[in-house]
Each structure stands twice: as structure tokens, then as C-alpha cells.
Simulated scan of single mutants.
Amino acid sequence: MIKELFIRVYNFFVSRFFLLMRVLPVKNSVVILTSFGDNIDYIIRHPKMRLYDEVIIFSSRQYDFKTFDNVKVYTHSSLSVKELYEIGRAKNIIVDNHFPVIGGMSTLKPYVKVFQTWHAVGAVKAFGLMDESFKHRPDCAKTRFKKTYQNVDYYVAGSKRMADIFKQTFSIDDKKIIKAAMPRLDFYREQSNIQSTRDNVRSRLNLDDEVIVVTYAPTYRENQFNISDIPLDISKMSQQLPSNYRIALRLHPTVQLDTDIKGVIDLTDGFSLEEVLSVTDILITDYSSVGFEFANLMRPVIYYPYDLDEYTNTKGLIDDYESLVTTNIAYSTDEILEMIKNDDFSAEEIRQFKDLWNDYNNQNNTNTLLSMLQ
């Protein structure tokens, strides 16, 4: 209850601050709040962004954003007066996550628009109003959450399936949905982008053309801090797969990779997600949204939910797991090996999976989003 009281006081303070800011003239600016950074380069390099006097980014992590004369980057902090001041005077707000400050945005100038790009193509893990923890919150907190989600004017959804999930998890209607994928998914619309990125990464890794890369990219788990904590027998896979197969790992930065695992490619640091997926021939994941994005490449995905029951009970899932992913579900290293060795993948199923989660990714997504900015 103490945390809830603090949040309500914070929201009250922020809303009053924005109310006072109404007396000041609006600036010809766009404010971007980001946790993930992946969409930002696509947004800020768009020609429309040069029409604004300022494009102000508040980032919770250090990203090497492409710089322009009108772009300014600051460290994100919901308690920063600078951040509140810039939000209160901006024409447009773009966010890629749920930030506490959104709870006070109901008193922004009425013509100011707030856009949510989100940060995932699809969803397995429950979030928003469907999160397991939401069920145990007091009624006042549930009401606050619902009001907060209404403060966002538009949500970018890359598929009808994701739009339906947003409507349920954020308690919104169709009028708030922009039928376009996240800006960074523009990358997958040009085969030349994919091929040149793939060639570049393979060159950096000294991989021959014959090498097939199998990448394991699990979701973050609080109890895993070393690769040995992950129940996937990587050594066995390396030994039993043909010699032209290489295992790659895309782990959470907190997970330590053992240096004695020979021949394993570490893609955790120094590679963007687009680079990782471009070089990957077969992806292994679990509850991460990375599989839905990888589907744009029309390559096989193996889902490995070895702790499905535990994860469902503690974290919660959007829906029945089997209805969210492909039929290539494995529960052991041996099952994964069997799928790979037998090339047990259906091109038609891969296409259907791609279409289900990416059916709005058929346009210039960045342009569609930014055309709605004032």
C-alpha cells in the first residue's frame, strides 16, 4: 500500500505540473521516452523529424543514437524536472514502454498526442491488465492502471493479433490502434538490408558460407546468472550436430558465458537484434518476443519452454502457449536435436506464423506513425 500511495502522490504532482505548463506556449518539439532504443534511430532519421526545432530523447540506457543538429539526448528519470518541463511543452510524445510519468499525462495540453510504439512484435508473457500480479493489486491500483493506459492516444500494433492483445491488456478500443508495425521492422521489408547485414556479421565472425548458425535466445530469468544455469546441453548439441553447424547465444547481459565452451558464438554484446537475427538460420527461444520478429525472415523457430508450468504460474501467459507459437515445441535438448537433424520444419507453417503476427508489416511503418504527428 505504501508503494501505491507513493505512485498516486507522484501522479498527482505530475498532473498538476503539466496543468501549470499549459500557460506556456507549445514548442515545436517531439519528446521520446525510451527503455529499449531499437525504434529510435528509425524515427529520428526520418525527414519529418527535421521539421521540428527539437527532438528530445530521454533514454534509460546508453545508446549510440544517430545524431542530428536538432536531436538532444538525456538520461531518463521520471523525477527530472527537465524531463517534465520538455514533456509539458512538446507537440508530440513517443514512448516505447510503460513509464510512471504517463500516469500524470491526462492534464497535458488537449491537442498534444502520446504515441506508444511498444518494444515487442508479439507476446507470450502476460503484461498490463493480464499480468498475474495485477490480480492481487487493490482496486484503487487497478483503477489507476486503467486510467493511465487511457492517457496514451495511439498504440502501434503490427498485427490484428497484437492489436487484440493490446485492447485486452490496456483496456482500449480500436480507435487507439495504429495498424502498422514498430518502426524498426522496416528493416525486414528490404531483402538487400537483410543480406548486407547478414554478410557483414558473418564476415565479423569469420563464418564460411556453408556454416549454419543455430541461435539460442532465451528470455530473462531472475535465477539465471551463468550459462550453466540454463538447462540446454550446448556441448551435446555442438558434438551431435553436423560439423558445419555452429551454436550462437544471445543471452541477457547479466548471464555469464563460460569461456570453456568451445566453438560457441557469443552474440550477447556488440550486436543489434537485427544483426543477430539476420545471421541466424535456426532460432531457439521460449517466452521472448524475438521469435515473432524472426518470423519476418521466414526461417525456422524452435520453442523451448522447459519450465512452462512454473512460468505460467508465476509470470502468466497471454493465452495457451501452444496457440501462441508454432508447433515446433521442444522440452529437452534431445527433442531440439531431433528437429534440427530431421529438418522438421514446415515452410507453410512458418509463413502462416509470420502472417499471423506481422500482417500489418507491409508498409513503411515509420512513415505511417510519423504521418500522424502534429
Rank of each mutant, 00 (worst) to 15 (best):
E338Y: 05
R161T: 12
A217L: 14
D139H: 07
E274C: 03
F6C: 09
A90I: 06
Y111H: 14
A120L: 07
M21V: 08
H136D: 14
F99G: 00
H136N: 15
F68Q: 12
S238N: 10
I56E: 04
F166D: 00
L185Y: 11
Q224L: 10
D320M: 09
A120N: 07
F225Q: 11
V255D: 09
R16G: 15
A181P: 01
T327C: 08
E83Q: 15
T34H: 07
R22Q: 15
T67C: 11
H136T: 13
L79K: 11
R250P: 04
D41A: 09
F292M: 13
N367A: 11
D309Q: 12
Y63C: 11
Q224A: 10
Q224F: 12
D139Q: 11
Q116H: 13
I336Q: 03
I172W: 02
A126M: 13
F58D: 00
L373G: 01
N342L: 13
F99Q: 00
E86H: 13
G291W: 02
C140T: 10
R250H: 09
S243G: 11
N97L: 02
P110S: 14
S80L: 05
V55S: 03
R184S: 12
V276R: 10
R299L: 10
V156N: 01
T148V: 14
A123S: 05
N193G: 03
K167I: 06
